[in-house]
Amino acid sequence: MRLSSATFLFVTCAALTLSGCDDDDPILTPDAGSDAGTGTDAGTTVSTATVTTSSPSGGETDVYPLEMYLDASGQTPVIAFRKVLTLTFSEPMDPSAAQVALHDRTDTTVPARVLTGTWSEDARTLTVTVPRSEESTRPLEVSTRYAVALDALRDATGLALPSNAALEFTTGERDPELEHACTHTLVNTPEAVTAGRTPFDFPPDTQIGHARYDVTLRAGEAGFGGYTGFISDPENAEHVTLYLNQEVPTKVTNDTAGTDVASVLAPARFICAGITHTVTFTSEPGDQIHLFQFGPVASERIQFVLERE
């Protein structure tokens, strides 16, 4: 078993997990609409069902190896790690057959893990949760090629998928800053503020590092929007990141200098439900007042975690 490639310190306790597996025969990923699920196998007719969509997608690289969530099953809720996989098929499947096998193709000494998924009501989408294993603190290893063997699944007529049916993907490296921000979305009580309608409408301060803000925006003709404030460090330039729970057009202005500040709105890798996008910018030193202009968006409320370093 390989050791973890990184160790992270979190502001709260976190439970983690991993796994792997092993098989000498190559496992192929059938493409949606291909004939990989047709034909015969040792004289037995096999299912024509194929995977039409999946998460991660077949052949995807740089897949994040874990997801963070709050596990409330014990007496004290803790942050835990898992990885959720989903596969949607071209036709209804047999809901009584829900086992898949997870194979580690990078370290073939790791034994396969048999996992039982859950079928959707229409028996076309299988959700498989990869938990932590007894040997590791993560569900999946970083920078590792995996294959999820699907040959134990059957379609609604009882025909099994072909022996080479599999979902293959490769994990990437971890992002400690993003994982750290996720801990705040999971355990911090949000600070509720109401955005200013204009820059002169006394925008509330949203400048505390590690804080989670719940912002009520103002209604406008094009949607909801508004302003909040931020004051730069007296002595040092800082790299500032807003970890948003939805895509929000955001403009950053140095109100003291009367200039716009270059910022970047970008999608975030999926690690936790509370973060979908980030806004990043650099603030210059000197106790300078900045304004965040949010919107317009369809939602009246947005949340973000602010990190400054």
Rank of each mutant, 00 (worst) to 15 (best):
T280W: 00
V114E: 14
V264K: 12
S96Y: 00
D255W: 04
T17N: 08
Q293T: 08
S57N: 09
T7S: 08
E179C: 01
Q99D: 14
R113C: 05
G229R: 15
N164P: 05
D255A: 13
D155R: 07
N245G: 13
A149G: 14
A266G: 12
T278C: 06
S54R: 05
G226Q: 03
T241C: 08
E67F: 08
V264S: 08
P77F: 05
I289G: 10
V11I: 04
R2N: 04
P204I: 10
D287V: 07
D155S: 12
I275F: 01
A98D: 09
G172Y: 00
T61Y: 00
Q293G: 06
A112C: 09
Y243D: 07
H184T: 01
R2W: 03
E173A: 13
D151A: 05
L28E: 06
V11T: 13
L126W: 04
A181Y: 00
T206Y: 10
Q293W: 10
L178D: 08
D260G: 02
P285D: 13
D233Y: 01
E168N: 15
Y69I: 06
C13K: 10
G59E: 10
T125M: 03
T116A: 00
V51Y: 00
G33V: 07
S19G: 01
L85T: 13
P77Y: 13
D151P: 03
T278R: 14
T50A: 06
G172R: 09
L70E: 08
T12E: 02
Y227L: 09
D41E: 08
M1E: 11
K83W: 12
I275L: 12
T12H: 14
V148T: 04
L291P: 11
I27Q: 11
D23K: 01
T129N: 09
F270S: 15
E177F: 13
D24N: 15
Y69A: 05
T137S: 15
P30D: 02
V193L: 03
Q303W: 05
S4D: 02
T116M: 02
G196F: 05
L306A: 11
A49P: 04
T276P: 01
I271C: 03
C272H: 00
L217W: 07
E309H: 14
D260P: 10
A147N: 06
K251N: 12
R154A: 15
Y227H: 06
A97Y: 03
H103R: 15
A262E: 09
